[in-house]
Amino acid sequence: MLAEHFELIEAIGLNLFYAFIFIFIGLTIHDVMKKNDVPKMGKLVVYFVLFLGCAGFIAKGVIQFVFESQGVG
């Protein structure tokens, strides 16, 4: 049974790893900005860029799912 679902388990594990990395990066950036007293506009820009990186991975996953469900690739 494990061999049959190996790709699914691998994909879920990789997605969880990416989520952990983004959360860890966000917490690290938050800590650095808090210690260095960054203005509110600077924090907004930094979090927006971090969100764009996250959104890119989510968009990649959605596009990949759509292509695979239609038989492309």
Rank of each mutant, 00 (worst) to 15 (best):
F17W: 06
A55I: 07
A55G: 01
I63S: 06
K40T: 08
I12M: 03
F24C: 05
G73D: 11
L2Q: 04
G61N: 09
G42D: 03
F17L: 15
K60V: 02
V46K: 04
S69R: 14
I12P: 00
F57P: 00
L50F: 04
P39W: 03
M41K: 12
I21R: 03
V45T: 08
A11T: 04
G42Q: 01
V72A: 06
F22Y: 14
M1H: 07
G56N: 06
Q64F: 11
D37Y: 06
F57Q: 00
L44Q: 09
H30L: 12
F65K: 07
E7Y: 12
M33P: 00
N36E: 15
H30S: 13
F22C: 04
I12E: 10
V32G: 01
E68S: 09
E4C: 09
I23S: 07
F6L: 15
V45P: 00
L52Y: 01
V49K: 01
E68Y: 08
G56P: 00
A3W: 07
V45I: 14
G56I: 10
F6A: 15
I23E: 05
T28V: 14
A55V: 07
F22R: 06
A59G: 06
D37A: 12
F48S: 14
F6Q: 12
F67M: 12
I23A: 11
L44C: 04
A3C: 08
V66P: 01
F57L: 13
F6I: 13
Q64Y: 11
A19E: 07
I9P: 00
G26K: 01
C54G: 09
Y47S: 04
F57A: 03
E10W: 10
I23Y: 07
L44F: 14
I63K: 10
N15V: 11
K35F: 09
F65S: 10
F67C: 08
P39M: 02
A11I: 05
V38G: 03
F6K: 13
D31T: 12
V49N: 01
A3T: 09
D31L: 15
P39A: 03
I29F: 09
M33R: 06
H5K: 10
N36P: 00
D31A: 15
V46Y: 01
S69C: 05
C54Y: 12
Y18D: 06
P39S: 02
P39Q: 02
D31Y: 14
H5I: 11
L27V: 07
G56S: 13
N15E: 15
F51K: 08
V32S: 02
H5Q: 10
A3L: 13
